[in-house]
Design a protein around this nucleic acid. Structure first.
Lengths: 202, 202
DNA sequence: ACCTGAACACCGTTCAAGT
DNA sequence: ACCTGAACACCGTTCAAGT
């Protein structure tokens, strides 16, 4: 994009440009194979070795991009949950959080499973402290909130959250990859999931 | 493996050897990046161009391997379902089928999500007629069988099957990739899933 | 008819060198 | 201090040639 590019004293804004270019490339193509080092540096207007001044390996660049997108997911869920949670509607908070998760996967231009695949390759270093487990934590809170306010059936919160999480994850990977399958509306699926697994609304 | 290898009039058994070598390589490494053309042909004791006598592209080889593994999954489910179905135990048949699906993903040396990832790259040609949708069909039958014999709650069979399928798929991809997560036993999760989503056994 | 040697255009990564 | 040119060992794939 910014083809003619020359730098001098400016610090590490190249690092930020590389992250942006990688994010954009993933969003435009939706294909991890298209995210090649030469494509990334071409977009910024720089040569391959420059990338290694800022990232020890391609995986670390991708990891950073993926981490940021998962952080955005966490924010989206938090935002959706906030309003109903504040007025004490536990059922609606849970519903809204689950829906935000699915909508994010559905609308994500980079592709939820592309990110997930990248995260898989990337997982060797350290425990999985990604915002995806943050989503799991907020899911447990949501279910606990429901039980505390008397909506939903009693039961092991972690157990329930595990099944809801797995179901949401399954839908998040399947829905975007198989648009030709006759999926019910996301709202309907979320309602039936939390009705069956958490016992909310019948 | 079979390093010294010379052929003459024998037809297309090289094709079969290439498929076997690819399957073995996937099973041993569990890493799709390790499945390289040179590694495959080395295992058979042949040079890269020979592969293209039998497969137009690497994707077609992988597709064949993946198709066979999904067919094996279909067989495993059919086998698990057969006995309870014959004695008319619809609930147990459904339970056994779901469990077989999860066990297969859990025990699969090639890695369920590696296969699933490969299938994703491979999906461009034709409709998705894989045995994975065959598994979905048999899931619908299982739920329909339950309703016909009076176990489980009434409701749209396809809708129910969709949610169970998504849940199983989510578990199938998550459980093997996160062994450190404290998963409940597969039996427990299947029981709670079909209890909540199909209304069987409470 | 079946297989190989050598090459193609790519890839991620490194190293010496330029300013 | 920041960036480049040129090369490394790989990759999937092709093409002419050998028996």
């Amino acid at each position: 994009m910014t083809r003619p590019r020359a730098a001098r004293g400016e610090g590490d804004q190249l690092r930020e440009q590389l992250i942006e270019a990688t994010t954009a490339l993933l969003a435009e193509t939706g294909d991890e194979r298209a995210v090649t080092i030469r494509a990334i540096v071409d977009a910024v207007g720089v040569t391959p070795p420059s990338l290694y001044l800022h990232f020890p390996t391609k995986q670390d660049l991708v990891r950073e991009v993926v981490d940021r997108r998962f952080a955005a997911l966490g924010q989206a869920i938090g935002q959706a949950v906030a309003e109903p949670a504040e007025r004490g509607d536990a059922a609606e908070a849970l519903r809204a959080g689950c829906l935000a998760y699915l909508r994010w996967a559905h609308d994500d231009p980079g592709g939820y499973q592309v990110l997930f695949g990248a995260r898989r390759e990337t997982r060797s270093v350290g425990p999985d402290g990604s915002s995806n487990t943050a989503a799991f934590t907020s899911l447990k809170e949501g279910i606990g909130f429901c039980q505390a306010t008397g909506v939903g059936r009693d039961g092991d919160v972690t157990r329930m959250a595990t099944l809801v999480w797995a179901s949401l994850h399954g839908l998040a990977t399947l829905v975007p990859t198989r648009p030709e399958f006759g999926w019910p509306p996301l709202e309907t699926m979320v309602d039936e999931l939390i009705a069956g697994l958490v016992g909310i609304g019948r």
